[in-house]
Design a protein around this nucleic acid. Structure first.
Lengths: 209, 209
DNA sequence: GTCTATAAATAGATAGAC
DNA sequence: GTCTATCTATTTATAGAC
């Protein structure tokens, strides 16, 4: 009914957001329950009142973002249009999600990097769903002849991480001033970045014919 | 002299390797000193005898791998040849390093994902050095006209993570049998994978002329 | 160099009053 | 729903014998 899985109450939403940021900045293991409560300006016991455990809280954060991203990816994949356009749309959508949930890129990146060890099967399936949608688009392009043959997973893992890293890095840049090079991560506009990834992805996938 | 920074004694080398694997599998925060000692089949006190702390041990593991990878990247960048060939060579070299040090991909991937929070300046500079070498190659290609213009960092972050993820995932694949799709990460040969990345990178960077 | 025993700090989690 | 106080287990790290 009016009830959704999203955080409802005041303190619950505060805990959720504080946790999302804490997990994003430090990763699951390094995240501290005390710090989450502190950031949410609620008592630690409230955290356990709303969520069963640190793990449960983390799972909620994961599912919330995977649900949003997975839904968009699936909608695009099942919609009309040529594969090239769908891929562009997916890239743009992903960037929008990263803007709406700043904790999404670092968290998802770590999960990919780690092989998702502290994720239950259902949540893992949601993460997999994001890939499956993109896979469908790539396979469509291969059927249409616009994309070259090859394992879609490899293409997926060339496109997705670069987007995640770009946004994950924006959180930590400017702390390492002394070092040349990495500091050169140009503060380009988001639009410019989106177009760059879209062009790179298309070039990478374009069939040679 | 005969003294290098590499682990020397028997137990020290054992600790080093055990730590490398533990850090790779779990990440710095989740890694347990007790487990490292156990895996190395030495007493925990030995670990602190050879290395000052968990952090110190982690730093040694990081430096060892960044030294090796950075040296190869720099050698390639400063050597002769067109940029396209250099890029291919770097990709192949990176894969070789990943084979020689299986802990390298997961660890480096996590550091990139996290913005390298538990890394001292000197070690961070080594990590940066890997990028700077690749940047030089890309800029050479841009001068030569074979690579199109654009921030080398963006290209770097499309190539490197895909390689790291491919190898990092090989460690954890086959544990998640129930889930379709991700399981489809084809057990292709390393050579095949190298050629795929090389072709993708070239296509991505090729100037349109 | 190697080990036992233990310190000291901190973590996640809960009991129970309000 | 909210808070205080606290339990219990675990973790990094070290002292000190051999």
């Amino acid at each position: 009914m009016g009830r959704t899985k999203r955080p409802r109450g005041d303190s619950q939403a505060a805990v959720f957001r504080a946790a999302a940021h804490e997990f994003a900045e430090r990763g699951y293991e390094a995240a501290r329950v005390d710090r989450i409560a502190q950031r949410a300006r609620v008592n630690k016991a409230m955290l356990y009142y709303h969520y069963r455990s640190k793990q449960g809280l983390y799972t909620e954060v994961l599912r919330d973002m995977l649900r949003a991203v997975g839904l968009r990816a699936r909608t695009i994949a099942d919609g009309p249009g040529p594969a090239g356009v769908k891929l562009d749309t997916w890239i743009a959508a992903l960037v929008e999600e990263a803007a709406a949930r700043p904790w999404f890129p670092p968290i998802m990146l770590r999960e990919i990097a780690s092989g998702a060890p502290h994720i239950d099967e259902a949540t893992f399936a949601m993460m997999n769903g994001v890939y499956l949608a993109v896979r469908d688009v790539i396979e469509q392009g291969q059927r249409e002849g616009s994309f070259r043959q090859g394992d879609p997973l490899l293409a997926y893992f060339m496109i997705l991480p670069s987007i995640l890293i770009f946004f994950a890095r924006q959180r930590v840049i400017s702390q390492r001033k002394g070092v040349r090079g990495f500091a050169a991560a140009a503060p380009r506009t988001t639009d410019e970045f989106v177009r760059h990834v879209q062009r790179s992805a298309r070039a990478m996938l374009r069939s040679d014919t």
